[in-house]
Design a protein around this nucleic acid. Structure first.
Length: 278
DNA sequence: CTCAGTGTTCAGTG
DNA sequence: TCACTGAACACTGA
């Protein structure tokens, strides 16, 4: 679930549900891996009785702003997500197949109850996500080391190329996965960018022409924008995206009649189409 | 029983 | 120090 678009949707859900409301109940799981260093009690104390004043996101990292410090940083890891009860605008609802009536949901790490009765749960089955306390999340630990956020920013071609200095030997797939380059791009977005930009994932950064860099720069932007616009709902991603065919490494998988190949590049399983990517 | 996996981090290498 | 790689982390679902 969690690349830039999924996290942005999660942020919108929290924003609609929580901003302007006081947290009347806060339950935090005793999980010293997901709850970073400070412990569940400290997180509960930070949240209980506070009023949510806003939300923010950079790349795959997001945070919840309160009327006092510290604020809450949230990272999804591979399996994190939000679930809600009550008060959610219809347009932000998940697709029917994602709806699960159980409450609190399985693998909850945090459950908040707001004045007015709405509830918010953060789930994280594989415990690679994090809940952390920060006075200024945008300018501290994980976030201040990240690259540009392609949903908020489009670097000029010159700025874009400047970010690539000294990265010449890496395969372009590895570059796209690097959060210090473009924050929020994960495995499926990287593959989609390379497919639509018609570049083989193994091409080294140093081998790309200006025109090829330009295709990458613009595709990162358009794919992220499109995925966010449809609220990260896969069933609404444009027909013709590699995304719909990349799962499961199915033998004989094709996009637009061309066979998909699966290789490990940049340390991740990479789906690509040799017939169109060079 | 085995293994991949929409992510991040850290040790190790050159 | 830097660029880069690969393994580790954790654990569910296939």
């Amino acid at each position: 679930m969690p690349e830039l678009a999924e996290v942005e949707h999660g942020r919108c859900v929290v924003h609609a549900l929580a901003v302007g409301r006081r947290i009347e109940e806060a339950w935090i799981d005793e999980d010293d891996i997901v709850v970073e260093s400070v412990g569940a009690a400290a997180v509960r104390d930070a949240l209980h009785g506070a009023t949510v004043t806003g939300t923010g996101r950079h790349g795959k990292q997001m945070w919840i702003e309160l009327d006092r410090k510290p604020w809450l940083g949230v990272h999804f890891g591979m399996t994190g997500g939000f679930r809600t009860r009550g008060d959610l605008p219809l347009q932000l609802e998940n697709s029917p197949q994602e709806v699960d009536r159980s409450w609190p949901p399985r693998f909850s790490k945090m459950v908040l109850g707001f004045e007015g009765g709405a509830q918010l749960a953060f789930t994280n089955a594989r415990r690679l996500g994090r809940l952390r306390l920060r006075d200024d999340p945008a300018n501290s630990k994980p976030i201040n080391k990240l690259g540009y956020d392609p949903y908020k920013t489009l670097p000029s071609p010159e700025q874009f190329k400047k970010r690539l200095a000294r990265r010449g030997k890496a395969p372009v797939k590895a570059l796209l996965l690097d959060q210090k380059f473009a924050a929020g791009v994960g495995n499926w977005i990287a593959d989609e960018v390379l497919y639509q930009a018609r570049l083989a994932p193994t091409r080294t950064v140093g081998s790309l022409s200006d025109e090829e860099f330009e295709r990458v720069r613009l595709k990162i932007r358009s794919i992220v924008k499109t995925a966010v616009r449809v609220q990260a709902r896969k069933d609404r991603f444009p027909k013709g995206w590699l995304f719909h065919h990349r799962w499961g490494k199915e033998a004989g998988a094709k996009v637009k009649g061309k066979p998909i190949q699966f290789d490990e590049v940049g340390g991740r399983t990479t789906a690509w189409v040799p017939a169109v990517q060079h």
